[in-house]
Design a protein around this nucleic acid. Sequence first.
DNA 1: TCACCTCATATCAAAATGATATACTAAATA
DNA 2: TATTTAGTATATCATTTTGATATGAGGTGA
Lengths: 299, 299
Amino acid sequence: MNISYDYYRIFYYAAKCGSFTHAAKALLNNQPNITRAIKALERELGCTLFVRSNKGAILTPEGEKLYRYIAAAFQQIEAGEAELSLDKTLQKGSISIAVSEVALHGLLLPVLEEFRRSFPGVRIRISNCSTPRAISELKHGAADFALVTTPTGIKEDMKAVNIRHFSSVAVCGTAYAELKGRVLTLRELAEYPIVSLDAKTKTHELYTGWFAEHGLVFSPDVEAATADQILPMIRHNLGIGFVPELFLEKEQEKERIIRLWLQEQPPARSICLVTKKDRSLSIAARELAEMLCRKEGSE
Amino acid sequence: MNISYDYYRIFYYAAKCGSFTHAAKALLNNQPNITRAIKALERELGCTLFVRSNKGAILTPEGEKLYRYIAAAFQQIEAGEAELSLDKTLQKGSISIAVSEVALHGLLLPVLEEFRRSFPGVRIRISNCSTPRAISELKHGAADFALVTTPTGIKEDMKAVNIRHFSSVAVCGTAYAELKGRVLTLRELAEYPIVSLDAKTKTHELYTGWFAEHGLVFSPDVEAATADQILPMIRHNLGIGFVPELFLEKEQEKERIIRLWLQEQPPARSICLVTKKDRSLSIAARELAEMLCRKEGSE
DNA sequence: TCACCTCATATCAAAATGATATACTAAATA
DNA sequence: TATTTAGTATATCATTTTGATATGAGGTGA
């Protein structure tokens, strides 16, 4: 029992070449080894596979029957090796990322641009969602890794690596121009209507905690469903809000937005890469993750 | 290059078992060998295939990709081994035989009955035709071997083994009752109308030669297309004919047939098994051929 | 007859494998 | 907290298999 599969490879080549000598050349081996291997295979299978002659070796009916299976099998293996080799060199492969709004704009998109330029063959699926939802996608295997903002609320089965710190700043629209240029206390600011993400998000939780630390209650007057709705709401003077400083980097985003200065520093946050501890990344995913981590540093 | 396929077998089992230890048991091997083999495979393929833990080893994304191919390949190989093993034990297989009339009734049918009883799984195709046609079928690969009567007219690329000698006897119908019981000369007999196989057959050639040896011309008055038409023609008193003695073995064949005694012995003939020298027989065909040869001996 | 081609055999060094003992790790358990 | 357990990793050595070379035997074709 348990026939050496390397013998089958030799059988495969011998059958294909119709000659032990030629098979030996194709396998970078020598003819006596082929003779010996085929003989061993025939002994193990219990039947003759080749008729040898001074012209070469041709298959017996049993040999031909076997060859049909072996050829199919080896074409499978060769296809597998080929695909693996493409994956390995990042000519193929696919990555699935669950990413929160801030992480998407603040980190992923610019890195992805670079990655795509380097490895155009890798398919990328991006699921843009809130931090808890991104973590849930990761947990259920729908994403290879997640890029989210702290606090992540992950459990023991996951691992988070901070990649980029960012601070949030308070901003308001032109209707609140009176606040411009002054250093405000949080208590002062709390008198104004607040625009924030909805209560189910980690961001909301974070601000609730921060306000509580200063003896205040965080009760937004306007709640947005996604982070990218906040700046437009501020622009339309719906209230005062907190946005990641990096959202204000582009000139067009600063249009009709007033940055406010607070005595109390809003809690520092990070964009971090979260992976499941019990699952390893594909080569493509690992490459992208490493590229992301190389951008490490605060804003 | 050229990865050992035995490593793939180990990979296959390790992946299926989810553990190097269990794979080792399934392969009747030991765990350190599995560890070593997988490590070698990973080195050769250039990527990690398993994530090891104290709970076992699970596939990486690349490992899973490879596994799909390897599993398909090995199922092929296993199917091939299974089929070969069935063939080998004669539970399956097929044989194609080209056989002349005399060989069919005189040898093949009784042996085939026995063969079929022993190996009911083997499919048998019989092509019943004249000797030259049987040889032609063999030559073109339509038959595994031929069972024909001498003279065979085969060339160097074939080999004939005599299995059973038989002699032909002269017979006539009841209308020629005057010949019964006497010992005739061939010259006497040649005066009567002759029934024979048609001129294209080896049998015809044989009798032409025999008559010539005795200074006579063999010119049949009635020609039959196949051997089994001769006895009925004799019965209907179309003339005198030569039939293999073994055609007269069964009682019902002797009905209204008179056996004649000749001074000159008709040429001795044989049923023989013809094979192509450059092609080997399948296991099933070889078994039947051996069974046929065991019946060796004259009538 | 002679080169030339095939597979078969003999032999030996080198490499791979099987086997064992043991270390290390993390999780479950007392 | 200590212990057991179930898994992988490493080291080592005898055994087996493989790679390589030289050589033989038997056909084929010039």
